[in-house]
């Protein structure tokens, strides 16, 4: 009797394990292609949100480059990170740079900043933040169009003194009862533009098609 139950439940455990492995392995194989396509589409949507794609997403491709260590601190990035170059019809069009402000009210505010190669901002989007709902969350594009006030701005437009919220003598609006959050975002966007100005030529060179490297040895 004892051995019978033991064999029987050993059989059940084996069956369950085999079934579990088969189910997961076969589904993984069946969905692999679809999953990577979905992921690529999501990435395009994610990076595309800071680009003006004129409804031509197909014209854009992306090259990812590691960000040079010396820029990481200014960009608020703790560890090695990547930036992306958007190519339009194969030509470098804009840099898409992740950037984090640590001077917000509720902790890190993660930004995605798009800057075209004439050094103008294409768009800025908030990736994540923990600002207070109803106060600081107006930086989200779903909550208000404040974040669009960065569009087409550059380091010279406005002048450096204008790169601040109105309370600090700049040109950007603050929110009623919340000046810390927009101040943090404006500063970080300006800092990102400065990094772009310093790294622009390197990024351009690195994103250019390198035919010599593509040749098979």
């Amino acid at each position: 009797m004892m051995t019978k139950t033991t064999t029987s439940s050993a059989l059940a455990l084996t069956l369950a394990a085999v079934f579990a492995s088969l189910l997961i392995a076969s589904l993984e194989m069946l969905t692999r292609e679809r999953a990577s396509a979905s992921k690529a589409a999501a990435e395009l949507r994610y990076l595309g949100q800071v680009l003006d794609m004129d409804n031509q997403p197909a014209a854009f491709t992306f090259v990812s480059l590691p960000i040079d260590n010396r820029y990481l601190e200014v960009l608020g990035l703790g560890e090695a990170a990547q930036m992306h170059i958007a190519l339009r019809n194969g030509e470098p069009y804009a840099a898409i740079v992740p950037s984090v402000s640590n001077t917000g009210y509720g902790g890190a505010i993660k930004l995605l900043v798009g800057i075209d190669f004439s050094a103008r901002i294409t768009a800025v989007r908030i990736v994540s933040h923990r600002e207070t709902k109803g106060l600081g969350d107006k930086i989200e594009s779903q909550q208000s169009d404040w974040i669009d006030s960065f569009k087409r701005r550059s380091l010279n437009n406005p002048k450096p003194s204008g790169w601040a919220i109105k309370a600090d003598g700049g040109i950007y609006d603050q929110f009623t009862g919340a000046t810390i959050t927009p101040r943090a975002v404006v500063r970080q966007v300006a800092a990102t533009l400065e990094v772009f100005a310093a790294a622009r030529l390197t990024w351009l060179a690195d994103s250019a098609p390198r035919e010599s490297l593509d040749v098979e040895p």
Partner: peptide, 11 residues
């Protein structure tokens, strides 16, 4: 299994 399917069809 559910996670794999959601990731593939509703990433």
């Amino acid at each position: 299994a559910a996670e794999l399917i959601v990731r593939a069809y509703a990433y």
